[in-house]
Structures are given as C-alpha cells and as structure tokens.
C-alpha cells in the first residue's frame, strides 16, 4: 500500500465529530484510514479533543484488532491463521516468519520494510497454508519457500507483481 497522497492534518480529520466519548471508535477508524496507523501524537491529539485520558484511548486501540499502533511496513505480511491453514501448520509458519523478520505480530521492522500481522481466514483454504503480502496471495508455503520469498523481497525492497 504505497501512498504518496497528501494527508490532511489531524485536526481537520477529527473536527467533524462531536466532542463526546461515544465517537471514539469512529474517530480512531478515520484517523487510521488517513495515516495508516494510530501514532502516539494522534492519540494524544484525540485525547485532548475528547477530553479523555490517553490511557482510555490506548486501551480501546489495543482491544480491537483493526487498530494499528505502528506505521505499517512497505511490505505488509499477513499470515493466515484460519482453520485449514492451522491444520496445515500455519503456527510453525508464523514462528518462522517472526524469526526471519525479527519482529512480533503487530510490529514493524526498524528499517520500516516489513510489518507482520495475522488474519483469521484469507478465504483461500485450497492453497493452505497461505499468506497475503501487499494484497498478493502466496500459498502452499513451507519454511523454505517462505525464507526464499522474504530474502528476495529484502534484497529488492519490494514485492514484484
């Protein structure tokens, strides 16, 4: 998801919402849609806008899977943890991926290249175990194949179409 689009200032993004606690989730969603994630600065700005302690907002943001607290990497890896993939060993795949990338689920590598996530089911159970990387599907994975793909992407810095 490489965007070069100009982002709006956060005050502009949240201004249309009434200053009430019940709009928190809508605000978080819109801010994330704008910037791709919820930064500390964004959360603090929302905190003073709603007059709601940042601990409360951090609590909500970490409760829901949809919210991301780190800037996503240029290459976003999503390992499928659906039933079929699980049966085909996606937990091991995830472990390998964590080791290869050196990051935990929900994190972004220091160079900003990779971020790692899990998803409940990608809907492509026929090619389990599967993952989605920047919108592309990769199936019938094993550790060796995963290693090859990640090293290729790391070398080129992008995912070829």
């Amino acid at each position: 998801m490489e965007t070069t689009q100009q982002t709006r200032p956060i005050d502009e993004v949240i201004a249309k919402y009434p200053k009430a606690r019940e709009h928190l989730i809508s605000i978080l969603q819109e801010v994330q849609a704008e910037y791709g994630f919820l930064s500390t600065e964004s959360i603090n700005r929302i905190s003073s806008y709603l007059n709601l302690p940042s601990s409360k907002i951090f609590g909500v943001a970490t409760f829901y899977n949809q919210f991301k607290l780190n800037a996503p990497g240029r290459i976003q890896v999503a390992i499928c943890r659906g039933t079929a993939c699980h049966v085909k060993g996606s937990l091991n795949l995830l472990d390998s991926c964590r080791q290869l990338l050196g990051i935990e689920v929900g994190q972004t590598s220091k160079d900003g290249l990779f971020s790692l996530e899990t998803v409940a089911c990608l809907g492509c159970c026929s090619i389990a175990p599967a993952m989605m990387v920047n919108g592309q599907f990769f199936g019938r994975l094993d550790k060796k194949k995963l290693e090859y793909l990640i090293e290729t992407w790391r070398a080129s810095g992008r995912v070829e179409e």
């Binding site: 601990s55 409360k56 609590g59 409760f63």
Partner: peptide, 16 residues
Amino acid sequence: IDFTRRGFDTMVLPPF
C-alpha cells in the same frame, strides 16, 4: 493506567 489488549493478553498498563 487502564486495561489494554484483549483476552488472555489483557494487562493493566499505562498508555503506550
């Protein structure tokens, strides 16, 4: 401090 994360991962933590 507040509750953060969900399920077994739930923890009482300061913001961020």
